Amino acid sequence: SLDLSLNGLSSVPVGLLDELQSLRWLSLAGNRLHGLERAAFEPLANLQHLELGHNPWECDCNLRDFKHWMEWLLYRGGKVDAVECTLPKDLRGRDIRGVPVEMFNYCVPPCSRNVLNPSGGGGGGGGGGGVEAPGDCARARYRPASVRRAIGTVVIAGVVCGIVCIMMVAAAAYGCIYASLMAKYQRELKKRQPLMGDGEADAEDREEKQISSVA
């Protein structure tokens, strides 16, 4: 086990946990973590319990890949405590594990800085250093427009499930009605069989009487 809680950590560098493949319990609770890199946790093949509570999580596109890794950990029987979002505001207080993955469909690749090499001649002794300028793109975050798409997906799935359930109920009702009708038919058939047998016996008696009278 490894307890890194309450250490003021703001990130977990990739490679920090590479030599801990046998680690089964890890706590990162009570730090200053906004997001985590999936690659930093993929070497933990035997991890069973992960504590991430009490961190100011920003549930934006930077946390999407780590969300997928958490879902994989839960799928193979691991345990993860609540990862409550602090940003954006419309997700504040929600556990990111319950946020539909469709909300991250509009994520764009992270921005990169462009290195501009100054051109132009000049006199002697000029330095050849580059100038680093920020790109025009902004940090990728969760977009509210994707919420509508996620809700639409949930509604469509609910309608399809409802139709399937109605069809199953109708099929079950039809089967019950058919079974009851067949049972009723069998009961009536059994009631008629003794009557038919008595009629045949009476006919045989009459034939015997006619033969004896002729004789």
Rank of each mutant, 00 (worst) to 15 (best):
P110K: 07
L44I: 09
K190W: 02
G125M: 04
A170I: 10
R141C: 08
L28S: 02
V83M: 10
P13D: 11
D81E: 05
L47M: 06
L44K: 00
T153I: 12
G35A: 12
Y174R: 13
R32D: 15
A45N: 02
G128E: 06
Y106N: 15
L2R: 09
P110G: 08
D198F: 04
E204D: 06
R76Y: 01
E132H: 09
A215L: 07
G126F: 05
E71F: 02
E102P: 03
K79W: 13
P43A: 03
T86I: 02
R187I: 02
P100H: 07
Y142G: 01
K209H: 03
N31R: 01
A39Y: 00
A138H: 12
V159I: 15
G121H: 07
S5E: 01
L16V: 14
K190M: 05
I166C: 12
F66D: 09
H54R: 10
L91P: 07
I166H: 03
A39E: 15
P100E: 07
G158V: 10
D136T: 15
G15Y: 06
S27A: 11
L87G: 02
E204H: 01
I166S: 09
D65M: 04
V99E: 04
A150M: 07
G162Q: 03
P134M: 12
Y185W: 03
R187G: 09
Y178K: 15
M196G: 04
L23F: 01
E37H: 08
G130S: 15
K191I: 06
R141A: 13
A215G: 11
K89G: 07
G162M: 11
P13C: 02
G15R: 08
R38C: 13
G125L: 11
I177G: 07
G128A: 11
I96Y: 01
L4T: 07
W25T: 12
G128W: 05
R187V: 10
G130I: 13
G128Q: 09
A173V: 15
C85I: 05
Q21R: 07
P118N: 04
G15I: 11
E84M: 06
L50P: 04
R141F: 08
G175L: 03
A203C: 02
M167S: 11
A183M: 01
N114G: 06
L36K: 10
N31E: 08
L16E: 11
V101M: 15
Q186C: 01
E19F: 00
V83I: 12
K89M: 04
A183F: 00
Y185E: 14
V169G: 03
S10E: 14
K190V: 08
S213T: 12
L17A: 04
L2H: 06
A173S: 12
G98H: 10
M167Q: 11
C59S: 10
D136A: 13
F66V: 10
S27P: 04
S10Y: 05
G121C: 06
G120V: 12
E58K: 00
R24W: 00
N62R: 15
L189A: 14
Y75C: 03
L73W: 05
P194Q: 05
L2P: 03
L16N: 00
V169K: 01
P134G: 09
M70V: 14
G120T: 11
Y142A: 10
I166F: 03
G127L: 14
G197Y: 02
P13Y: 00
